[in-house]
C-alpha cells in the first residue's frame, strides 16, 4: 500500500460539539501535507485520531497500512500542540528516555541523542536540566524527541509556534530534509505563509469538515484571481479615472502601485486589455491569491452560510 494515511468518513463529537464530521483524507507516502484551518476547526482532534490517542465515533482509519497507529507507533513521530518536557530531567536523559519508549535499541540511544543535539546546535546543553533551557531550545528538544527514532510518518502540530525566525528556518530546513529523505510529513498550522513555503498539498478543515484537499498550485488556480496589480507610466492617474473603467470596482494605491479589484464576471485578460488601452503602463500582472486570501475567503463564506442557515434548520 502506498498511502501513509487513509481516512474514510470519520466522525468525532465531544458532547454537543461536533469536532470532526465526515472527513475523508488520503496522505500518500513521501508527501508533505499541510493541515490548515482556523483555531478550533478540528485539526488537533483529527491528528489525535490519526495517532490513536482518541478514537473516532465512526468511520475507518488506516495508518501505515494498519488499522490503528498503536500498532505502528514506533514508525510514527509526533510533535503535539500541547507539548512539554520533564523539567527536572537532564536533556540527554530525556531524549534517551523518549527514544527508548519509541523502540530505539539501547546501544544507539546515546549516539543518536548526541548527534541530533549537535544538528540543532544544542550540543552544549546535553547535561543541563530541561527547565534551564529557553522556550525555543525546549521546542527543539521536543522536535528531536519526535524524530529520534527515524519515523516513516511524522506528524507535527503547530511546530513553529514560539520559535524565533532563525530557529524557524532551521526547523523548516530539517523538515524539508526529512521529507526529501522519504519521510511522510503532515504538519498543522494556522500560519498560512509557513504552509505555502513548505507543502506540496494542502488540506483545510473548517468547522470539523474538510473544505480543501489539493496541491497548492491547483488550489491557487481554482480560486479565480480578481485582483490586478498595475503600475502606470504616468504617475498622475487618479482613482476616479480608474474606477470609470467598466471592469474595475475598487482601486487602492500603495506607493506607485495600484491594486485593482475586478467586478464579478470580468475576466483578467479583458481587464488587462481595457486598462492598457486607456493608460500608459509600466507593469501590469494578475495577482495570484495567497493561501491566506483563500483561507479567509473560505472561512468567511462558511460563516455567512451558517448565519443564513441557523442551526437546526435543514435544507
Amino acid at each position: 500500500m502506498n498511502d501513509a494515511i487513509v481516512i474514510e468518513d470519520i466522525h468525532k463529537s465531544f458532547g454537543e460539539k461536533q469536532a470532526v464530521e465526515a472527513l475523508d483524507l488520503v496522505v500518500p507516502r513521501g508527501s508533505l501535507h499541510g493541515f490548515i484551518g482556523p483555531n478550533g476547526a478540528g485539526k488537533t482532534t483529527t491528528i489525535r485520531m490519526i495517532m490513536s490517542i482518541i478514537f473516532p465515533d465512526r468511520g475507518e482509519l488506516r495508518v501505515l497500512g494498519r488499522p490503528s497507529a498503536i500498532e505502528s507507533k514506533d514508525k510514527i513521530g509526533y510533535l503535539p500542540e500541547e507539548r512539554g518536557v520533564y523539567k527536572k530531567m537532564k536533556v540527554l536523559a530525556f531524549l534517551k528516555y523518549m527514544a527508548r519508549l519509541k523502540g530505539v535499541p539501547a546501544n544507539e540511544l546515546h549516539k543518536r541523542a548526541s548527534q541530533w543535539l549537535e544538528r540543532v546546535e544544542l550540543g552544549d546543553v546535553a547535561g543541563k536540566k530541561c527547565e534551564e533551557l529557553s522556550k525555543g531550545m525546549q521546542q527543539k528538544i521536543q522536535f528531536i524527541a519526535a524524530v529520534i527514532h527515524e519515523p516513516e510518518l511524522l506528524i507535527l502540530d503547530e511546530p513553529f509556534s514560539g520559535l524565533d525566525p532563525v530557529n524557524m528556518r532551521l526547523l523548516r530546513d530539517l523538515i524539508q530534509e526529512l521529507n526529501s529523505g522519504g519521510t511522510t510529513i503532515i504538519f498543522s498550522t494556522h500560519v498560512m505563509a509557513q504552509a505555502e513555503q513548505l507543502c506540496d498539498n494542502i488540506v483545510m478543515i473548517n468547522n470539523g469538515r474538510k473544505v480543501l484537499d489539493d496541491p497548492l498550485e491547483t488550489i491557487r488556480n481554482r480560486f479565480d484571481p480578481n485582483v490586478i496589480v498595475f503600475e502606470p507610466a504616468d504617475g498622475e492617474v487618479s482613482t476616479a479615472q480608474i474606477t470609470t473603467l467598466g471592469c474595475v470596482c475598487e482601486a487602492n494605491k500603495s506607493d506607485d502601485l495600484w491594486e485593482l479589484t475586478l467586478v464579478d464576471g470580468c475576466k483578467p485578460s479583458q481587464a488587462i486589455a481595457e486598462i492598457t488601452s486607456n493608460f500608459q503602463t509600466n507593469r501590469i500582472a494578475i495577482k495570484k491569491p495567497s493561501l491566506e486570501d483563500i483561507f479567509i475567503k473560505i472561512v468567511e463564506a462558511d460563516e455567512s452560510a451558517s448565519i443564513s442557515q441557523p442551526a437546526g434548520v435543514t435544507a
Partner: peptide
C-alpha cells in the same frame, strides 16, 4: 499532575497508550 501541567503527557502518549 506534573506530567499534565508540563504538557509532557501527550508527547508520552505518542509512544505508549
Amino acid at each position: 499532575v506534573e506530567e499534565k501541567a508540563s504538557r509532557v503527557v501527550e508527547v508520552l502518549l505518542s509512544a505508549v497508550s
